[in-house]
Lab assay of single mutants.
Amino acid sequence: MTTFKLIINGKTLKGEITIEAVDAAEKEKIFKQYANDNGIDGEWTYDDATKTFTVTE
């Protein structure tokens, strides 16, 4: 398992979430669903070196 981080830079929601997953593709799906469930629609980036997804509205 690898630890992945999501950084949220939303208009109404900001924060960080850290979760373990098998791979980045699995985690991306979970993070995007979390963002969608919380009304966050923005630009996504991924840094493989730090295993960090960022979504910015």
Rank of each mutant, 00 (worst) to 15 (best):
E28T: 05
E16F: 11
K29A: 12
T56P: 01
T18A: 05
Y46F: 05
I8A: 00
K11F: 13
K29E: 12
E26K: 04
K11P: 11
G15W: 15
I19D: 02
K11S: 14
F31D: 01
K29F: 09
N36E: 12
Y46R: 00
K29T: 09
E28L: 15
E26V: 06
E16G: 07
E26F: 08
N38I: 14
I8K: 00
E43Y: 10
G39N: 08
V22E: 08
E28G: 07
A35V: 06
D37H: 03
K14G: 09
K51N: 09
L6W: 09
A24V: 12
V55W: 13
A25E: 10
K32Y: 10
D23M: 07
V22F: 10
E20S: 11
T52N: 01
G42T: 00
E26I: 07
N38T: 05
T50R: 04
A35L: 14
K51I: 08
G39Y: 07
A21G: 15
E26H: 09
G42R: 04
D48F: 04
N38S: 05
K11R: 09
E16S: 06
G15H: 13
L6R: 00
E16T: 07
F31G: 01
D48L: 04
V22H: 10
K27I: 15
T3S: 10
K11A: 12
V22M: 10
T18Y: 14
K27A: 15
T45G: 03
Y46P: 00
A49N: 06
A24F: 11
G39E: 05
M1D: 06
D37N: 06
A25H: 07
K14V: 14
K11D: 10
Y34G: 00
I30S: 03
A21S: 11
K11N: 12
Y34L: 11
G10F: 15
I19H: 02
K32W: 10
E26P: 06
K14S: 09
N9W: 11
Y34T: 01
E26A: 07
E16Y: 09
L6I: 14
T12K: 07
K14F: 12
A35M: 14
D23W: 12
Y46C: 10
T56R: 03
N9P: 02
K11W: 09
V55N: 03
N36W: 13
I7R: 02
G39L: 06
D37M: 09
I8D: 00
K27G: 15
D23F: 06
A24N: 14
F4R: 00
D41V: 12
A49C: 13
T18F: 13
D37C: 13
D47K: 00
W44I: 04
I30A: 05
K5H: 11
A49L: 12
A24M: 10
T50I: 03
M1A: 09
A25L: 10
N38Y: 12
D23Y: 07
Y34P: 01
K51V: 07
K27E: 09
T52S: 03
A24C: 15
I19T: 02
D23R: 05
G10V: 13
V55M: 07
A21T: 11
E57H: 08
D47V: 01
A24G: 13
A25T: 08
I40S: 01
A21W: 15
D47F: 02
G39H: 07
V22S: 11
N9C: 15
K14N: 11
N9D: 07
G39T: 02
Y34R: 00
F53L: 06
F53E: 01
T50H: 02
M1W: 09
L13F: 15
T45V: 10
F53S: 06
T12M: 09
G42K: 03
E16M: 08
K51T: 04
D23V: 06
G10S: 08
N38L: 15
V22C: 14
K5G: 01
D48Q: 06
I19F: 15
T54W: 11
W44H: 00
K29Q: 07
A21Q: 05
M1R: 09
F53W: 07
A24L: 13
K27Y: 15
K51C: 12
E20D: 08
D41R: 07
I19Q: 02
K5Y: 14
Y46K: 00
T18M: 10
L6C: 14
E26R: 04
M1K: 11
F31H: 01
L6E: 02
K14I: 15
D48H: 06
D41T: 13
G15T: 14
V22T: 09
A25F: 12
T54S: 04
A21L: 15
E28F: 14
E26M: 07
F31W: 06
G10A: 04
L13H: 12
Q33R: 06
I17F: 12
I8Q: 00
D41P: 04
D47Q: 02
E43W: 12
K32P: 01
T56Y: 09
D48R: 02
E43A: 07
K14A: 12
A49Y: 06
T45H: 08
E26Y: 10
T2S: 10
T54I: 08
F4N: 03
T54V: 05
K29I: 12
T2R: 04
G15L: 15
I8P: 00
E28N: 04
E28P: 03
F53H: 01
A24H: 12
N36F: 13
T50G: 02
A24Q: 13
K27L: 15
E28A: 07
T50N: 06
K27Q: 15
F53P: 03
V55D: 02
F31Q: 01
V55G: 02
T56S: 08
I7G: 00
K27F: 15
T2M: 11
T54P: 00
T56I: 08
T18V: 09
D47L: 01
T52F: 03
V22N: 10
D23C: 12
K27M: 15
E16K: 05
K11E: 12
G15K: 15
F31R: 00
F53I: 03
F53K: 00
T45E: 08
I19L: 09
I7Y: 07
T18I: 10
I19P: 01
A35T: 06
M1C: 15
T12E: 12
D47E: 02
E26T: 08
V55H: 05
N36R: 14
T52R: 01
G10D: 01
F53Y: 07
W44E: 00
V55R: 05
Y34F: 12
E43P: 03
K27V: 15
I7V: 11
G42L: 08
E20Y: 14
T50S: 06
N9Y: 13
K5F: 13
A24I: 14
N38C: 15
A49Q: 09
L6T: 01
W44R: 01
V55L: 13
A49R: 06
A35Q: 02
N36P: 02
K14D: 11
K51R: 11
T54G: 03
T52K: 01
Y46T: 02
T18P: 02
I19M: 06
T12H: 12
T54Q: 03
I8M: 07
A21C: 15
G10M: 15
A35I: 14
F31K: 00
T52Y: 02
I8G: 00
D41Y: 13
A35H: 02
I19R: 01
I17Q: 01
K14R: 10
E20C: 14
F4W: 06
T2G: 05
M1Y: 08
L13Y: 15
E57S: 07
W44K: 00
K51Q: 08
T12Q: 08
F4T: 02
E28V: 09
I17E: 01
I30R: 01
G42A: 06
A49P: 04
T18S: 06
T56E: 05
T54F: 09
T56Q: 07
I30C: 12
T52Q: 02
D37Q: 07
T52M: 03
W44P: 00
K29L: 12
V55Y: 08
E57Y: 12
Y34M: 10
Y46L: 00
I8E: 01
I40M: 03
I7C: 10
G15F: 15
N38H: 12
N36Q: 13
K14T: 13
I17D: 00
N36V: 11
L6H: 00
G10Y: 13
W44F: 04
M1L: 11
T18L: 10
T45Q: 07
T12Y: 13
F4K: 00
Y34Q: 00
A49S: 10
F4M: 04
